[in-house]
Computed example of a mutant assay.
Amino acid sequence: MDTILYPLEWFVAFVMVGFHKIFSTIGLNAESGWTWALSIVGLVVVLRILLIPLFVKQIKSSRRLQLIQPEMQKIQAKYKGKKILSPARSRPRK
């Protein structure tokens, strides 16, 4: 499992140390907990920005499902109460 997650661990460490160096350079105490706390906030912001394309895709997919919802309800109403057999069950046994 360590080998699979190594790139993610490397990325998180790289971003955290990068933000820590930036905050230390602008005058925050390097040993302070505030510097690391702000580094965590920076990491969260970076991850949120990287996940924006996935959020957009999810929203578009949800909207498409809402558009076909009336058609799905018609199909559900048409087959309500009917027992549907799978192809494997509809064949007679030998």
Rank of each mutant, 00 (worst) to 15 (best):
F23K: 08
L67Y: 07
P92Y: 10
F23Q: 09
V56R: 09
G27Q: 05
R48L: 14
L65N: 11
M16Y: 04
A77V: 03
A13Y: 02
F11I: 09
T3R: 06
I52M: 08
E31A: 04
E9N: 12
L54K: 02
S62W: 06
K78H: 13
V17W: 00
A88F: 06
A13N: 10
Y6T: 11
R63W: 06
H20I: 01
R48N: 15
P70G: 08
Q58G: 11
I22V: 14
Q76K: 13
A88P: 09
L47R: 03
D2C: 01
L85S: 09
A77Q: 09
G33T: 10
V44T: 07
L5M: 13
Q69M: 12
L51M: 08
A13I: 04
L8P: 00
K82S: 02
W10Q: 12
G27I: 01
P70R: 07
G42Y: 01
V46Y: 14
L47A: 10
P87I: 00
V41M: 15
G42S: 05
A37Y: 06
I4N: 08
A30W: 07
L5N: 11
L50Q: 05
P53V: 04
S32L: 01
S39P: 12
Q69Y: 14
Q76D: 12
G18K: 04
L38T: 00
I4R: 15
L47I: 01
V15E: 03
L8D: 10
K80T: 01
R64H: 07
Q66N: 06
K83D: 03
G33F: 05
L65W: 02
I59L: 12
Y79W: 15
G81I: 08
G27E: 04
A13M: 04
Y6G: 01
F11M: 06
V17T: 10
G33K: 07
R89K: 15
R93K: 06
R93E: 04
F55C: 04
R63L: 08
S62G: 06
I52D: 01
F23R: 12
L38Y: 07
Y6H: 08
L43R: 00
E9D: 07
V46E: 03
S24M: 00
K94H: 04
A37I: 12
K57N: 12
A13H: 09
L8Y: 12
M16G: 11
V45W: 08
A30Y: 06
K60S: 07
H20K: 14
S32A: 14
I75Y: 11
R48Y: 05
R89T: 15
I22W: 09
Y6P: 00
T3E: 06
F11N: 03
R64N: 11
R63S: 02
V15H: 04
F55Q: 11
K74V: 13
A88I: 15
L51G: 02
G42M: 01
V17H: 03
I52H: 01
L67M: 14
E31M: 01
I4A: 10
K83M: 11
A77E: 14
G81W: 09
G81R: 13
F11S: 03
A37K: 05
L67D: 15
G18H: 08
P92K: 14
S86R: 01
I49S: 01
I40R: 01
S90E: 03
L8N: 05
F23V: 00
V44P: 08
L50K: 05
